[in-house]
Amino acid sequence: MDVSSTGIQEPFDLIRLSLSERVFVKLRGDREMTGILHAYDGHMNLILSDVEETIMIVSEGEQQATVNVAKRKMDMLFVRGDGVILVSPPSRT
């Protein structure tokens, strides 16, 4: 049961190895955020600090859709797991 630097047994290992690191989270409702991961559970409920959230606001124009982004920062945030689509750890390169 040794977890080598690349070998992970289950998807949650990827998240566990990202504790105290800055992660990228893609959420339902055209939202994304980065933050430092401090806690998670099996539902993918997350607790992040130093969060920057980006909301994509798509407005359908006559010719083409325009995308506006709204950004905001939050100190400490609980994210409910059912909104999570994807979590990506910082690239280990």
């Binding site: 990827l14 689509i85 690239s91």
Partner: peptide, 25 residues
């Protein structure tokens, strides 16, 4: 739940993002 490596995100045929690792719920 899925763990992917060297991931490309494709939306409508175009690459919109790349991730070294990705966890998909």
């Amino acid at each position: 739940n899925i763990a992917l490596e060297q991931t490309e995100e494709h939306v409508e045929g175009k690459i919109t993002n790349r991730y070294g690792d990705a966890f998909i719920r």
